[in-house]
């Protein structure tokens, strides 16, 4: 239990996927304009990463490893993730059209979120078992959600600030991300 907790905290804060591993930067910068959409994206990412780390864990343990073809992990994982996102999209469309509408275009965009593949590969690299892998996936996605929501909050404020012309738009966002990364660096003391 304590082991799992350590993996969780480590993945969510100490090794925050965006701010210290630099994965999933595209949605982090692209969808963090408004708090609402940021939260929607975070929710969708939590959902997809948790399920995908479970399924990729299964495939790795029961298909790739026994067959001795672990070098195929990247391509197989991508296949699984793409299919999974498609499936989640269909499922939500049928079961909960409201949520489907709220997530909109961000749902299919998750396919290209490198954090999803990153988590699956990290699970293998750290040789986590199935449960540890799922916990790691969930915590990573949670960390992603926390940082994207924080970012959206800051961006909503800086939008109205008198920023120097040269820094307007993306530069100020990247600077903000940089400062956030330094702040998150403080979590490494938890180890």
């Amino acid at each position: 239990m304590q082991e799992l907790l350590m993996i969780g905290i480590g993945a969510a804060f100490i090794n925050n996927v965006v701010l210290s591993q630099f994965l999933g930067l595209c949605p982090f910068l692209g969808v963090s304009k408004k708090m609402e959409t940021a939260a929607g994206m975070g929710g969708a990412v939590i959902f997809v990463i948790t399920i995908s780390s479970f399924i990729t864990g299964l495939i790795y343990q029961y298909l790739l490893e026994p067959m001795n073809v672990t070098y195929l992990q990247t391509i197989v994982f991508i296949l699984v993730i793409a299919a999974l996102v498609q499936f989640v999209e269909m499922f939500l469309k049928k079961v909960s059209p409201g949520l489907y509408k709220a997530l909109g275009v961000y749902l299919p965009l998750i396919t290209t979120n490198c954090a999803v593949l990153g988590v699956a590969l990290l699970n293998v690299q750290n040789s986590y078992n199935l449960l540890e892998g799922v916990v790691n996936g969930f915590a990573t996605a949670f960390g992603f959600t926390v940082s994207i929501i924080l970012m959206a909050g800051i961006r909503e404020k800086t939008e109205h600030n008198d920023v120097l012309p040269a820094f307007r738009g993306s530069p100020i966002v990247l600077l903000t991300a940089c400062l956030m990364a330094i702040a998150f660096f403080g979590f490494s003391g938890l180890k």
């Binding site: 495939i59 298909l63 790739l64 067959m67 073809v69 195929l72 391509i75 197989v76 296949l79 699984v80």
Partner: peptide
């Protein structure tokens, strides 16, 4: 084997 596994998946 690689073809079968990726193709099969």
């Amino acid at each position: 084997l690689a073809t079968v596994i990726v193709g099969g998946t």
